[in-house]
Amino acid sequence: MSTMYQVLRGPEHFLPPAAASMGIRLPDPGQAHIHGKIVNEDEAMEVAARQFLSAKVPTIFPGPLVLWAWNEKAAGKATAIRHLYETIKECVTPSQQAMLIPMPDYRPKYPKINPEIEINPNHPNLTIWHNKIDTCMFVGVHCHQANLSLKIIRGGTYCYTIAMCAQAGHEDAMVSFRDATADKIRKLADWVKKLKGSVEPPKDD
């Protein structure tokens, strides 16, 4: 297809198509995708790190699979995620604000969630709008809920989305890794450290 669909920043429109239905396919082991194009993983690491460093509010959204210490592997990922967050915080300028906001629950909450401190897959846009988040990474969120959120975010916000997926990746993210491990998350932190100072910080509006 010469006019291949690209998974780009929104707002795309109210109901963006599932990227898979537009021909976007998932990466094989060792690969990742950027905007739907299959690349090797290192290329995506660099793009994700640059994205964090150039964002006004670079944010990580950890989900239930890493928020609770279900087993040693999950606990190890949580440590690596915290390390990535602290690294981003250290590497950005004072005008940028790194955030770590949990998605502890998938159920719709009444009357609504507190968007300052949590994100919910049924209306992730509330948290993104409230905190003016312009780049986010999902990690430890079950596939279905991540897909739902990523589509809503692409549909209604300007936020750039990254998926650090433990399975086969997400078509609906702008950058997606697959087979996430604690080491892979630390590798991304190393990329952020390596690129510190080489990425232009965001300009004030």
Binding site: L67, W68, A69, W70, A75, R82, P102, D105, I117, E118
Partner: peptide, 17 residues
Amino acid sequence: RIKIAPEMFDIMPEEYQ
């Protein structure tokens, strides 16, 4: 059977803690 990961405890909403 279930504990919040120590590195994530402080960011969890109070009701989950």
